[in-house]
Design a protein around this nucleic acid. Sequence first.
DNA 1: TTCAAAAATGCAAGTAATATGAATCAATAA
DNA 2: TTATTGATTCATATTACTTGCATTTTTGAA
Lengths: 145, 145
Amino acid sequence: MRLTKHTDYAFRVLIYLASMPEDRLSTVQEIAENFDVSRSHIMKIVQKLASAGLIHSSRGQHGGIRLQQPKNAINLRSVIELMEATLTPVNCDDPVCLINKNCTLKKILHEAQRQFLEYVGRYTLADLAEPEVSIISLLSQRKRS
Amino acid sequence: MRLTKHTDYAFRVLIYLASMPEDRLSTVQEIAENFDVSRSHIMKIVQKLASAGLIHSSRGQHGGIRLQQPKNAINLRSVIELMEATLTPVNCDDPVCLINKNCTLKKILHEAQRQFLEYVGRYTLADLAEPEVSIISLLSQRKRS
DNA sequence: TTCAAAAATGCAAGTAATATGAATCAATAA
DNA sequence: TTATTGATTCATATTACTTGCATTTTTGAA
């Protein structure tokens, strides 16, 4: 009962990009170094985010990535739904549960899950950015140490 | 983002027991056969449920297991909290996230998780039992086929 | 007292999902 | 044409989950 690290990283990448000046392009390399994770790994997350239209990427020299949408248009729920492979709380079919048809439990759990997502869906990336704390400064602190 | 099968099985076991006459003792063997899962596996789930006081077990010949509490006293939330190893939506410390301290995301996700549990907590095992559909009959159907 | 049934426990291993990285390809601007 | 950067593919590591086997302990019944 935990989000995958992919989802976690996706949020971190988005927050990172959101903390940058809008016109600045970041690179996968740069993010990977700051997060201390391999380039290819971050790339996978970036790929998904890009193919979903959340971030924009451009190749070539002086290429890079940036948010494609305004911060307040990137809903947290959509990020979770994009990144998580499974979002159903139980799998009644493996192994098949004979109570299945009239199962109230399934309904309850699904509704609870729906409420989870509904709540998260009230927020956007804009709600995560805390202007008074620059992430860039935090990251540069790390480099110094 | 899914409950473990342990939790799933725990619910199935509890529903099974709840469908039995109160004075009847079921055995792990019997449940394992009906669910088509190994005895030892069901045993582990039963162990946890027993040590938490949800079901009562007695050894020896003519021993077995049964609910220890009335159906309406067994809260679904407590079952989840008992069975799930991790109930925090994200792990900000692995790898450590530098945004950590002022992270609004963490707060949002935790609150969403809280709402999930709060909702599930409104129901008890009694809400899952559907008297008009006997589980026992469903199970015997399976045996026939 | 002995025996059989049942839970309790510990050990080991299989399996699937997740997480990670290396290497290579393709595009683009200087 | 070359350096930079995203895109893609492949392989592997790791972890959590799942399962089964073997043995022990308890308890009621013969």
